[in-house]
């Protein structure tokens, strides 16, 4: 290969020289490369079926099939590894089992007497479960939304009317309100005096929004699942 390159270089410079000489009128004989460059012998690299260069090329497909088979086997391994890696990375984004276990809370409703508000810890926050009396339900249903700072009807905030489920964090500055206190018979925040009614709605004081209602459901009559 090096020999061929250097020959080409010599040839090119000889050409340039002869051109310049021809311009000055001196005749020069030029060497032609094709007559004295030998075709290299590739016998050592040829497969047995193509050692004889004069034979008809009948085995091309088989030879290509072998090469592609090797490449394909590598690709299959690559696909397997890539799939495993993608699986691992995508799987690492999903919540782990301990997080999922803490994400839900199951509450036995039979333990909560009517008229009582019970506090649970859920996702690091206090969770108020209130067993409302029929009188409280009636009162909250009768409140016109036009009077409310954050207008929501009682039906929008509860799944079952006798059970109120709210997160016990005041929407003003995050204190924990006190149950069964305040001017509206619901919750009262001692920090800055926000009054919430028995539906967890802000009625008086600085808080801008109603107490947050987490997604919850009742799988059967006696259990409540929050989360």
């Amino acid at each position: 290969m090096m020999k061929a390159v250097s020959c080409a270089y010599v040839r090119a410079s000889a050409q340039a020289l002869s051109n310049s000489l021809r311009a000055t009128g001196v005749a020069v004989a030029t060497r032609q490369a094709h007559s004295d460059l030998q075709v290299p012998d590739f016998t050592a690299y040829r497969r047995d079926s193509v050692k004889d260069t004069r034979r008809r090329n009948e085995t091309a497909e088989e030879r290509k099939a072998f090469s592609y088979l090797l490449v394909g086997a590598g690709a299959v391994g690559g696909v397997y590894a890539a799939k495993g890696m993608v699986n691992a990375f995508v799987g690492s984004m999903s919540a782990s089992a301990d997080v999922l276990a803490m994400a839900k809370i199951e509450i036995k409703l039979a333990d909560i007497a009517e008229g009582k508000s019970v506090t649970f810890k859920w996702r690091g926050k206090p969770l108020f479960i209130r067993h409302r009396t029929p009188a409280e339900i009636e009162t909250e249903r009768g409140v016109p939304t036009s009077q409310l700072r954050d207008p929501e009807t009682d039906d929008q905030r509860v799944v079952k009317p006798q059970w109120l489920v709210v997160i016990g964090v005041c929407t003003h500055l995050g204190c924990v309100p006190i149950a069964n206190a305040g001017d509206f018979g619901g919750y009262y925040c001692p920090c800055h005096g926000s009054h919430y009614d028995a539906s967890g709605r802000i009625r008086k004081g600085p808080a801008p929004l109603n107490l947050e209602v987490p997604t919850h459901e009742f799988p059967d009559e006696t259990t409540l699942v929050v989360g």
Partner: peptide, 18 residues
């Protein structure tokens, strides 16, 4: 081998599917 080459390996599409 010949059959495999002609049916699967010759086209990139069938090669990838294989």
């Amino acid at each position: 081998m010949k059959v495999i080459y002609n049916t699967l390996f010759k086209r990139t599409s069938t090669y990838a599917v294989a």
